[in-house]
Design a protein around this nucleic acid. Structure first.
Lengths: 205, 205
DNA sequence: TTTTACAAACCGACTAGTCGGTATTTACTT
DNA sequence: AAGTAAATACCGACTAGTCGGTTTGTAAAA
């Protein structure tokens, strides 16, 4: 049993509260009251409320980037890499739904200094996926009629949007949803000649 | 040249300012100063800042619902209806990007009374699309292996997410993006036997 | 004369951040 | 091991500023 630091307790509580009520509706007073701490303790650990918001953003996006990169490195064909990334991303979105809600709804609340860092990391995440699509197009595994930037954003949108509607208590698990997404994406972008390889990742019908 | 009412000028200015800086970072003082009006004028036209936010939400979502319903009524097959709805929706998202940004990022700021109304309308919008998918599955035009709720949300996510990244000044127009989306969606969900009908809406390659 | 449409000064509740102080842990000396 | 000084972690009352909303005033329209 490791003793949780005050800092970690503040972050955990804030993630929960921010998700529920939004950054601007959660006061520092409420955060510290929620965990039975004080304002002094808060400002001992954070320069400002802004810095706390940044920390939450950074923990999440850094994790996503690392997971994406791992999925990329672990495989060596566009199709397997894409499937692994879809799998990984939806998994992360399942686990970190609260972080994601904050990430996408409160990023505007970040002050400029922090905003720039986060934006760069967000682009980095997208670039990893886009690279996979582009490489697949080069080897004629993915259809070249589709602009790879649009395909990338279509996939990102499809996945990211889950944070708005996915409920862990809902009728389908995230794994089942991932299978559907994977099927749809592969069918949409894989070329005729490569479809055979993709079949194993698709839903049997 | 119609004289714009103060109310309309307030709405227009607020849409612009809210999109840029977010609801909570835009004060009533700033809005009225932006258009050279006064707080008295503001509160003569709106009960509260909340009501203004609601008005912006409602104008937009009501328009989306009407457009979706029109697209549904205008055609009579699942494929043509789906294509028309994709077309319509992306068009709306092109024109109303500022409204959408507010719609999706500030809906939490709505007070409960307004929030409920907006939520119902949002569900209504989704139901129209889901109905098209379900009907297509019943007539074996769309693949029944895919749960229609997930397909619906995948499409909604793909389209909605455009508000985060689409730039009118970017390399592709919204029409071109729509063509790509339509192609991807049709390829993903149309059955073998119905693919022939869908071909005309897809990108030639 | 009454109502409408706005203007401008004003108010009070709320909140991020401060500051002086106290408890607790660490680091060093003997 | 004991003592102690310094650094670290934390507390909570207070403040300065902000912002939604109100009140009072006024000029034109009806």
């Amino acid at each position: 049993m490791v003793k949780k630091t005050l800092k970690q307790r503040i972050v955990d509580a804030s993630v929960e509260l921010f998700q529920q009520d939004g950054y601007h509706n959660v006061t520092v007073d409420r955060i510290v009251e929620y965990i039975g701490a004080s304002k002094g303790g808060f400002y001992h650990n954070f320069k400002s409320k802004d810095e706390l918001l940044y920390e939450i953003h950074d923990v999440f996006i850094s994790y996503v980037i690392q997971q994406s990169q791992d999925a990329y490195d672990k495989y060596n064909t566009p199709i397997t890499r894409l499937c692994a990334m879809l799998q990984t991303l939806t998994q992360v979105f399942d686990m970190y739904q609260a972080h994601i809600t904050i990430f996408y709804e409160e990023s505007r609340s970040l002050s400029d200094e922090y905003s720039e860092i986060i934006h760069k990391k967000r682009d980095h995440y997208r670039d990893i996926l886009q690279k996979v699509i582009a490489e697949g197009q080069e080897t004629k595994v993915f259809r070249t009629e589709l602009p790879c930037t649009i395909v990338t954003m279509a996939i990102v949108g499809m996945i990211n949007w889950t944070y708005k509607w996915f409920k862990q208590s809902g009728p389908l698990t995230m794994e089942q949803i991932t299978d559907v997404f994977t099927d749809m994406v592969l069918r949409a972008i894989v070329t005729e000649q490569a479809m055979e390889e993709a079949k194993q990742f698709m839903i049997k019908g």
